[in-house]
Design a protein around this nucleic acid. Structure first.
Length: 423
RNA sequence: GGUGAGGUGCCUGAGUGGCCGAAAGGAACGGUUUGCUAAACCGUCGUACGGGUAACACUGUACCGAGGGUUCGAAUCCCUCCCUCACCGCCA
């Protein structure tokens, strides 16, 4: 959520940046400022009346004690009068505050100055690339065929148990999931991230906090009976650990990592890239989250990008790092880097990680603050990234490492997986 | 799910209608003392939104789980919800 004083002082910049993000309802900015003006005016009027009521009430108490009943009754009449004046103010104030909040929450975050212009994924900017695309044999096949050949994943079985997009991992496939999760968590904790295992369902407040609500409600599975949402990413429960907290500046940075399954309805994306593991409704992911001092967040963003890059390099996968253009970014981040790995048999780049700086956008929603050196509460900056999402990593590992004698496991995974290849 | 007790500031905990934004103790922070540590002593010790200021100061209002209500006046009384604890039931 953007901060009103900032909008007021930087109106032109805000309009310009929102346009970069392809945001159309620029009129909302004027609305916000007008509503805020109205709010201040009503607050002042309400407070003044309320102060008079308090004084009069106080006097009534004293008059009653002194036995001056008539005087007291007179004061009561005054209060009744004041309350009548106040009533419309109260209503208008509540209404205005709600409207202001509802309008404010509709505004996306401002993209950073370094965000490239553009509308579509094609306009994302490649920052760098690494790893070599493997030269596969002519008979190389995509991962869904390999999954069948080596009995690793059963997609049809998931259909029976749940529905499409819920693959069943089995055998060495299940073992590989476990190995990847453990390796990723070990890698993250070795770099100072504290490991968490958070709830997989969250309440509406948490979903609002990270920005899933109200905009992306349709992307989450909802348990109506208990008004809980299945998490689309560990970012939601993990970042909310510090919701409504005021930290000491010496507490920063806070580095957290968690493995969770992720649930996404993917409404509206049927039929596109849904084959095999490319897009599923439930998948596993290890996430890293940081809460940092505002002056450090861009430095930390680069550090997190390097962190994820190290992981992909260790897995020996060909990858590229993209800086997302304004139109392809989500509504909450200031700056996002996507990692894509090359799935050699499909000959496709698959997104496996997204690392973002949200600056104070999420922190303002969640009221995550710290006391700066002057002792004043100030919003932290939040960042998060996948390190990593499993399905597409697995797809690439299977496809890229297939050989006549089986699928070769990257050295870093062998001790976790317990073998050098799947055959 | 049932019954009972309860939810107060960073923590413990007092407060059952006006003198309470809230006692006391602890923790934390700053200072004095001290060879160092400890102890002792002094001070600070909520947040939000307004007004005010160059910035402080100062000042108004709100907040004692959440939301409603009663009353001139609510942490305190009433209602609904949420949560915690204990016991019972069920159960990994």
């Amino acid at each position: 959520m953007l901060q009103v004083p900032f909008i007021r002082q930087n109106k032109e910049l805000v309009l310009e940046r929102l346009a970069l993000k392809q945001f159309k309802e620029l009129g909302l900015i004027e609305e916000v400022l007008a509503l805020d003006d109205k709010r201040k005016q009503l607050t002042l009027a309400y407070d003044e009346t309320q102060a008079k009521i308090k004084i009069a009430s106080d006097e009534i108490g004293k008059l009653m004690k002194g036995g001056q009943k008539e005087e007291a009754e007179q004061r009561k009449a005054t209060v009744a009068d004041l309350k009548q004046q106040q009533q419309p103010l109260t209503e208008q104030l509540n209404e205005t505050e709600k409207l202001l909040h509802d309008t404010l929450i509709k505004l996306p975050n401002l993209p950073a100055a370094s965000v490239p212009p553009g509308r579509t994924p094609e306009e994302n900017v490649e920052v760098r690339a690494g790893g070599a695309k493997p030269a596969l044999a002519a008979e190389a096949v995509p991962h869904w065929d390999l999954a069948k050949k080596y009995d690793l994943i059963d997609f049809e079985l998931g259909n029976k148990i749940t529905g499409s997009g819920f693959p069943v991992y089995k055998n060495k496939g299940a073992r590989m999931q476990r190995a990847l999760i453990q390796y990723f968590l070990d890698y993250n904790t070795s770099k100072g991230y504290m490991e968490y295992m958070p709830p997989h369902l969250v309440n509406a407040d948490s979903a609002y906090g990270t920005g899933q609500l109200p905009d992306k409600e349709g992307q989450m599975y909802f348990v109506g009976e208990d008004k809980l949402y299945l998490i689309p990413t560990a970012e939601v429960p993990v970042t909310n650990i510090y919701r409504d907290e005021i930290l000491k500046d010496s507490d920063l940075p806070i580095k957290m990592t968690a493995y969770t399954p992720c649930f996404r309805r993917e409404a509206g994306s049927y039929g596109k890239d849904v084959r095999g593991l490319n897009r599923v409704h439930q998948f596993d992911k290890v996430e890293v989250v940081q809460l940092v001092h505002p002056e450090k967040s861009y430095e930390v963003l680069e550090e997190m990008v390097a962190h994820v890059e190290g992981l992909i390099q260790a897995l020996q996968l060909p990858y590229r790092v993209l800086r997302l253009c304004g139109g392809d970014m989500g509504s909450s981040p200031d700056l996002t880097y996507d990692f894509e790995v090359y799935s050699a048999a499909q000959q496709k780049w698959l997104e496996v990680s997204s690392v973002s700086n949200f600056e104070a956008y999420q922190a303002n929603r969640m009221k995550i603050r710290f006391k700066d050196s002057g002792g004043k509460p100030q919003l932290v900056h939040t960042l998060n990234g996948s390190s990593l999402a499993l399905p597409r990593i697995l797809a690439c590992l299977l496809e890229n490492n297939q050989a006549a004698d089986g699928i070769h496991i990257p050295p870093v995974l062998q001790q976790y997986f317990g073998a050098e290849k799947i055959s």
